[in-house]
Amino acid sequence: MLDLSFLGQTILNGLSVGCIYGLIGIGFCVIYNASGIVNFAQGAFVMLGGMITYVLVSLNVPLILAAAITIICVALVGVIIERIVVRPLWDRKATMFVMILATLAAQIVIERATLIVVGDQPKSLPVFTDLPPLRLFGIAIGYQTLWIFGTSIVLIIALGLFFQKTLVGRAMRACAINREAAALQGIQVSHMLALSFALSAGLGAIAGILVTPTQFTAFNVGTPFAISGFIAAIVGGFGRPFGAFLGGLTLGLAQALAVYSLGSGLKNMAALSVLLLFLFLRPSGILGSAK
């Protein structure tokens, strides 16, 4: 009986971290849809989200304000990367591989700059609601978990409305379907590229802020998060934002079950194995590729 509730706890934790992977995965899709670029610097946004909030909170800025400032700052970082790394390569018609390498290098630069500024000690944030966890059938549901679920659902709905109802969102979807045709309709494709980086960086930052109280953040957490987000995007069928969220939940669950049955040392290896399995057996993901 005790074991069963432990399994339930494991599943709950898996789904909660899966939401985070899903948000990062959506970030991959948003940029990919607008430009065909896979931004390997995605993890840096997650790391910066947690890290800048930590720095602001330690300067006695209230958490909500700190989070808001952080999201704006990280979105700006996204636009800066787009301007000084991606745009010049885009204009020179760089190959896909060069683009990946450049964004990966941008990730390393941000990581190392963070290391120099804040040091290598892991940092954490206080939980948003400091109350004892709810108990349900012997499963402890922390308020942070509820925050993660709640924020993710709100974001998914907001993104859905944004892509369906607003002119800008529909313009971005048009770019995803056919960039040349979108340009002929008068859509500023290059603006959409910058906007997609801002949006994706903001999502990454939110994911980073949400997850930091349950784990910790350090200069080098970005790459594992980016890989998990990428796996989520692949599992969901690359280029499908909501597929990516489902993929994130799947990955979080698979990872939690692997840890449950095989031990915590295998957490990253389980995620990477899910990636390779999908790549080899079903590269178009659960829902099928967007293109």
Binding site: V85, P88, L89, R92, A94, V98, L101, A102, A105, A106, I108, V109, R112
Partner: peptide
Amino acid sequence: GAALILILI
């Protein structure tokens, strides 16, 4: 990392 980006561009 920075050098790599500059060279690539």
